[in-house]
Design a protein around this nucleic acid. Sequence first.
DNA 1: ACAGAAGCTTA
DNA 2: GTAAGCTTCTGTT
Length: 992
Amino acid sequence: MKKGDHLFLVDGSGYIFRAYHALPPLTRKSDGLPVGAVSGFCNMLWKLMLDARNTEAGVVPTHFAVIFDYSSKTFRNELYPEYKANRSAPPEDLIPQFGLIRQATKAFELPCIEMEGFEADDLIATYARLACEAGGDTTIVSSDKDLMQLVGPSVSMYDPMKDRQINVPEVVEKWGVPPEKMIDLQALTGDSVDNVPGVPGIGPKTAAQLLEQFGDLDTLLARAAEIKQDKRRQSIIDNADKARISRELVRLKVDVPVTDVLEDFVLQPPNGPKLIGFLKTMEFTSLTRRVAEATGTEAGEVEAVPVSVQWGADRHGPDVGSGAAPAATAAAPAARANGGNAAAAAPSSASAESGNVHDTPTALANKIAERAASQKFDHAAYVTIRDLATLNNWIAEARQAGVVAFDTKTTSLDPMQAELVGFSLATAPGRAAYVPLAHKSGRGDLLGGGLVENQVPVRDAIAALKALLEDASVLKVAQNLKYDLVVLDRHGIDVHSFDDTMLLSYVLDGGTNGGHGTDSLSEKWLGHAPIPFKEIAGSGRNVVGFDQVDIDKATAYAAEDADVALRLWRVLKPRLAAKGVVSVYERLERPLVPVLARMEQRGISVDRQILSRLSGELAQGAARLEDEINAIAGERFNIGSPKQLGDILFGRMGLPGGTKTKTGQWSTSAQVLEDLAAEGHELPRKIVDWRQMTKLKSTYTDALPGFINPETKRVHTSYALAATTTGRLSSSDPNLQNIPIRTTEGRKIRTAFIADKGNKLISADYSQIELRVLAHVADIGQLKQAFADGVDIHAMTASEMFSVPVEGMPSEIRRRAKAINFGIIYGISAFGLANQLSIPREEASDYIRKYFERFPGIRAYMDETKAFCRENGYVETIFGRRIHYPEIRSSNPSVRAFNERASINARLQGTAADIIRRAMIRMEDALVAARLSARMLLQVHDELIFETVENEVEATIPVVRHVMENAAMPAVSMSVPLHVDAHGANSWDEAH
DNA sequence: ACAGAAGCTTA
DNA sequence: GTAAGCTTCTGTT
């Protein structure tokens, strides 16, 4: 650089946020990718470049660079840990744009500069100094006041959005001090956004006046006693240290050891085809046109760069096709640039890869899927990371890409007991690596399990990964992230910004055939069967922990998982917008992941003694019954074997009324045994009782103690987010959603679920939520009125149907109405109702007919649901969750009928499930805001269990009720009130 | 060792 | 009639 040269430094990071907030929200590409900030950035850059070519414009850049922040951690954090500590995560839809803006910069052929540990402002300060020393001028493209300290004879600022130059007079006009005093001024005023303390009570006006009077900060602090105003004087004396610290925070570093030299910044003429390729991908039509005109490129002949780049950078590895195509386009001189060349460099599916501006979102999403299915996997290309430097390179690569898929590898399926063994990550399709951390050598248990050599020390790796995983500006992608969240939280890592491919699939394809696990998704979308776990770690009695797996094998397996997750994400995420289910994913699924992770980690206390005592009682009871049963039967047999029992009851003893199961066995179901008992037979009653006792013993009193975690002494269930068709959660290991309650014997098990000493449990459950949802969605006047009046809904139904007054209603009448109400929710059939009430099918049909006469709106609702489902193949909850029933069009009448009932139920059950999800997502913040210590422990479909300190029970209940009862708002204003009952007590039994 | 059926628990 | 998960038995691998 020489005298007369002019350097333009664009504050890229500052610009991202300004462009984002200045432009209309939710500017999205057709596939749903938010690109508002990218658009603003490109327009601004183009305008600057245009000025560069227009010699009449006055300021003509000869050198040009765009500067970015590297991460939120800088040397200032060491100076003052609270620096920028209160800065919240960037907005959701801005995150994917960070990477895109860096790509945009490169499409403009401009240097993209960033450096770890330094803010963009420090790099700008350093380069401005270097340019000044070389005799050149600098224009800083920004309007950030933090940069104004740099303004001087050879440095000016330019605000592209207001088209305004900022020189010394402008700084003085705005702040009342010249640029060289900006540092002192900011030291006094502080900055609430960046958490720079400053001196309380001193604003810009006062600061300027004080600096005018005393000259500079040091003089001011030394002579503070001379200040006349009492308060102001005292504040400055008291906060002198804060002012000094603030000064160091706001002073920009002009001597950053930068690696790029100014000569690298020489402005290149724009590469029309390369730039247009990018702009087309972004669907910036008007800018594409303007660039085409200005560069003399035929835009129509330039292919959009392959759509794979839209969700992340795509610069690495053997990504056949997508890697080749943009390179070919970029290399092609303007005169030769045409679609044929670009496409020719790619495999034959290239035409399908290229996004077309006129594609519908669905067509685009399908093209992405088509392309993903054709890309190959190469296990040999995966990298094993064996030292920290290499790991850091990969982390830097992930930051560049803006998106990284990852997976943790551990020793257990239980995240509460799992030991971290390794970590895999993928930054682009085919570009994946595995970091072994705790692999042990073969004969581990004999020789103490020595660590295999050449593994990154766990402590170092965790620290390095923590920075990446906690950085909200890099999107993390994982399959079933909840597991990893629990494992990582135990290592002090709190993951920010993530997507979960399992949940993407669940939202898109809930109800369709095939699960949402890695293997089935990979098979389905990528046409690739990943290495089976068995092949790596064995199966059955030969299974070994992942820490025993050979590192080369582990690399192939683990890196592949991350690779698969990344590729799946690129296929699935665009489909979300194409199918119109973005908000289901963003509001009902993703935010629940960390909530459930925390609930699982908390667990619940279970009293071993109580269970042990119950177990003994049940064992005694069952033994006594066993003797009696054997005596009556006249022989010893295995009572637990339905086959043997059936033979005895209906064969040897010749009892009447036997029915067969579909496999031709005698049915010995509780229903059959109850019927026999009602006829006076002694044995069936005892069998039923024996079954109940052994069931309670084996499933609950014997099994639950085995789930008490040795470290936490609590039971940690696992919630599945993507296991049910309707949107409900499921619970397993152990299942805490089917703890007995109906019988007094079974209910005793709940007395073992207790609050810790000094605490209470609170149970809060929705009353009749599914019937209320029915009243709302089917718009049934009588039901809505009944719920509004708070009357007994089953009695009201009975009264309507059988013309019996609610007062003094016989319990049998009410029982029947209740069964009908439940039947409606389940998509009623005469067969089912007859079974439930033990009445003839004809009688059940009469009930149903009568019900529909009294509530014609319900029949209309059911018919409408079936018709919609037949037409579309799915039904929707009121929050837009889609539940698929492809078999509703089956030619098999019973299959069809089953799907019709399921679809009717799914709208109701699914809506109720969505409502409680919303409540759970909001609950933590509501409790914190109310300064309550209560924490959610369990969810049982319409019930939430909390634990809190004893003296906060009364204060907690109204907060919990409020969140639950208003959970549908504001998305849906329900026409029926939701009602929640809540109680606090020492055990789950008493609280319910 | 695993898979499916039967049976039972919950909302 | 809807939605789940767990245990035991039974037959196959």
